[in-house]
C-alpha cells in the first residue's frame, strides 16, 4: 500500500500533460495493479492532439471498489458511467459497465464484466459523491442492482413505464409506441389522396 501512496504523489507531480507520459501511464498502471491485482492492464492511446485515453478491463466485479479507490487516490474525478449490452451479450450471458474517470484531462475507463442475469455492482457513492445520479439512472434503465446506493429511487423514468427499458432491445415495436409513426403516415398518405 505504501508503494501506491508514493505513486500518487508521483502522478501529482508529473500529470498527464507534463511531458512524463510514460511515467504517468506507469503510475496509473501500478496503482491499479496494487488495487485490483497483478493481471490488471491499462491500454493507453494518444490522439493527434496528445490527449490520453486509457482502457482497462477489470479482472473481476470485486475489484471495482478497490480500483475506484485507487483512482480517487490519484485525484481522479468520476466523469461518466456507461452501462450497456455489448455485442452478443445474450449469447455470452454477459453485460458490461464502463466507469469513465478524468485524470486532469486524460480519460481512464474501467470496465467491469457482469453476468446478464442478476447483475450487481457496489455503489461508488461513498468514494465519488457524483456517482449518485449515474447509478440511479443505470438502475432504472438496465436490469442491474447497485448495492449500497443511498437513494435508489427512479430518477428520469415515469412510474408508468416498465422497468429497464434499455434491456428490451427486441422486440421493440410492442414495447415503444412505434405505431405512432405508422398511424401518422397513414393519415398523411390518405390526406394526400383526397386532394384533387
Amino acid at each position: 500500500m505504501s508503494d501506491c501512496i508514493n505513486l500518487t504523489s508521483e502522478i501529482r507531480e508529473r500529470g498527464p500533460g507534463g511531458g512524463g507520459r510514460d511515467g504517468f501511464e506507469a503510475c496509473v498502471a501500478a496503482a491499479l495493479v496494487c488495487a485490483a491485482g497483478e493481471e490488471t492492464e491499462v491500454l493507453w492511446c494518444q490522439d493527434r492532439k496528445g490527449v490520453l485515453t486509457g482502457w482497462c478491463r477489470l479482472p473481476s466485479g470485486g475489484s471495482l471498489l478497490p480500483a475506484a479507490r485507487a483512482v480517487a487516490e490519484l485525484d481522479g474525478r468520476l466523469a461518466m458511467v456507461t452501462a450497456y449490452l455489448p455485442e452478443r451479450a445474450r449469447e455470452k450471458g454477459e453485460r458490461e459497465i464502463a466507469y469513465h474517470f478524468d485524470l486532469d484531462g486524460a480519460t481512464l475507463t474501467l470496465t467491469v464484466i457482469l453476468p446478464l442475469q442478476w447483475a450487481r455492482v457496489p455503489s461508488l457513492t461513498a468514494i465519488f459523491r457524483n456517482c449518485d445520479w449515474q447509478e440511479r439512472e443505470l438502475m432504472e434503465l438496465y436490469d442491474v442492482q447497485v448495492v449500497g446506493h443511498p437513494d435508489p429511487r427512479r430518477l428520469f423514468l415515469d412510474h408508468s413505464l416498465p422497468h429497464a427499458p434499455f434491456e428490451r432491445l427486441v422486440p421493440y415495436s410492442t414495447f415503444t409506441n412505434a405505431a405512432t409513426g405508422k398511424v401518422l403516415w397513414d393519415k398523411v398518405l390518405a390526406g394526400e389522396r383526397e386532394e384533387p
Binding site: A79, M80, Y84, E87, T107, T109, D132, W133, Q134
Partner: peptide
C-alpha cells in the same frame, strides 16, 4: 462545461451504445 460521449460500434450503421454526459448533469447536486 465538460461534455463527454462514449460510442461503441459493431460494424453496422447504428451504435451498439451511445452514452453522453452533459455538463448540467454534474451541477444539480
Amino acid at each position: 462545461g465538460e461534455l463527454m460521449y462514449y460510442l461503441r460500434t459493431d460494424g453496422s450503421d447504428m451504435p451498439v451504445r451511445l452514452k453522453w454526459r452533459v455538463p448540467s448533469y454534474m451541477n444539480w447536486d
